[in-house]
Amino acid sequence: MNLLTAQNLKKSYKGKEVLNCNLSLPVGKVIALVGPNGAGKSTLLNIAAGLVAPTSGSLKMFNSFDPGSDEIRSRVAFVAQDVSLHDSLTVAEMIKVSGCLNRSFTADLARQRIADLGIGLKMKVKELSGGQRAQVSLSLALAKNPDALLLDEPTAALDPLASHEFLASVMQTVAETEISVIFSSHSMSDLARVSDFVTLLAHGQLQLNTDIDNVLSSHWLVRSTVSEINAVDDADIIDIDTNAVVGFHLIRSEDESKLRSFEISKPSLEQIVLAYLRNSRSHDLKQVGEVK
């Protein structure tokens, strides 16, 4: 079963296309949705959460359900980028509101979790720190007992400690409930810590969409000249190192044996992602140059 299936999914704002992709994301994974600013990450999550509709194409959750439907609102919890809670309410009131709005909401779970984090129930939301807001938001989302959690850059505004604690909470929840998570982030370290599947978007288009184990096993840093690396069969060149005559180039190849003549090493996930981002940017620059 797929958590999310997008077919010819397009979204434009004021005529500018911000998303254009086909995509399938599996259930039961912690999926890192990465990409630079304007890559379409938030747009994809907003569509999945039912906040906006696509301009064309379709997106289905759990194979067959429309985002925003009663079914999906009950089964999917969304934590927005700006952790949008009602500032004028207390934490206890936020729990009460969430309880009224969600049939399967477990208020005690939310209260317990928030109390364990040392956050006062009588505190107003506006009095909370960024990290506390994120934790309250996550607690409310988890108390819905959802099958999937959509986290739209929830750690973007957090300090390193708060970010670490938030991610630890997510990981603990995943371990306890086997919930599906889509987690968008700029932070490569976040990505490496919590996710087991990576989806890379750049300029609204899908660059990479696979298990992190697959990513790590199929990508190589190859030390060679540009002409040598171009001569390798059945390998996709992701990133060319032009800083030196003999540089470290990132390539994707399922067959390690074809690279035996080179000095190779395993890149980190961060190196791979950055290489894809550079690749997409240079591709765009090239396209812009061609247009000009």
């Binding site: 959460a49 039912g50 906040l51 925003g68 609102r73 949008s84 009602h86 500032d87 709005l101």
Partner: peptide
Amino acid sequence: NGTYKFDWTQGAG
């Protein structure tokens, strides 16, 4: 305030 993102993604709709 962006609270519509919270409200509109809850079960009630």
